[in-house]
Simulated scan of single mutants.
Amino acid sequence: MRSGWLLFALGSAFFAALTALFGKLGVAGMNANLATFIRTIVILVVVAAIVSLRGDWAKPDAVPWHNWLFLVLSGVATGLSWLCYYRALQLGPVSKVAPIDKLSVALVIAFGLVFLGERPSVPVLVGGGLILAGAMVIALF
């Protein structure tokens, strides 16, 4: 099944949908930043448990510096994304917030083309365009 990536991508979409639903319910009546902090601690514990159970720990010096750099930048971007996402969930309906958040898909297609030199394909461009159009319909109406 396409080297297994499709199954994991579908799992990601499923769990992202649950994240939106549970996040909307969990952030109600509390500070969005505190909610993000609690969520982050839970993620840290869950991922540490998985890494431990699988025996995937490695010495920090075994990880090249450029990997550290991009993982740190990714972590900062993730944190900022989550802070914005939880605040948006507090202020708006999950049925609008989550799809707008998925504009990240169209953005990452553009970033992949510009920064990673990925080659555009008709299905990717059409799909990205449809995501953009869908987000605009949801945001504007």
Rank of each mutant, 00 (worst) to 15 (best):
I50L: 13
I50W: 08
I50H: 05
V51N: 05
V51F: 03
V51A: 06
V51I: 07
V51T: 06
V51G: 07
S52C: 10
S52V: 04
S52R: 06
S52T: 10
L53A: 09
L53M: 08
L53S: 07
R54S: 15
R54D: 14
R54N: 14
R54P: 12
G55N: 04
D56A: 02
D56P: 04
D56L: 00
D56G: 07
D56M: 00
D56N: 01
D56F: 00
D56C: 00
D56Q: 01
D56E: 07
W57K: 05
W57V: 12
W57S: 13
W57C: 14
W57F: 14
W57D: 15
W57N: 12
W57Q: 12
W57Y: 10
A58Y: 00
A58E: 08
K59Y: 04
K59N: 10
P60W: 01
P60I: 02
P60M: 07
D61R: 15
D61T: 15
D61G: 08
D61E: 15
A62I: 12
A62E: 14
A62K: 14
A62L: 12
A62P: 13
V63H: 03
V63F: 01
V63Y: 03
V63M: 06
V63G: 00
V63T: 06
P64F: 11
P64S: 09
P64L: 12
P64W: 09
P64K: 07
P64R: 09
P64A: 14
W65P: 05
W65I: 09
W65L: 12
W65G: 02
H66M: 13
H66K: 14
H66Q: 14
H66G: 04
N67K: 13
N67W: 15
N67V: 15
N67F: 15
N67A: 15
W68Q: 02
W68S: 01
W68P: 00
L69Q: 05
L69K: 06
L69W: 04
L69C: 04
L69F: 05
L69E: 02
L69Y: 04
F70W: 15
F70A: 01
F70Y: 13
F70S: 01
L71R: 01
L71T: 01
L71W: 01
L71E: 00
L71M: 06
L71D: 00
V72T: 03
V72R: 00
L73W: 12
S74R: 05
S74H: 09
S74M: 11
S74P: 02
S74N: 13
S74Q: 09
G75F: 02
G75Y: 03
G75M: 05
V76W: 09
V76H: 07
V76E: 10
V76D: 10
V76A: 13
A77I: 09
A77T: 08
A77E: 05
A77R: 01
A77W: 05
A77Y: 05
A77F: 11
A77Q: 08
T78M: 08
T78E: 06
T78A: 12
T78G: 06
G79N: 05
G79T: 04
G79Y: 02
G79K: 02
G79M: 03
L80W: 04
L80R: 03
L80K: 03
L80S: 06
S81R: 11
S81E: 11
S81V: 02
W82H: 09
W82N: 08
W82D: 05
W82S: 07
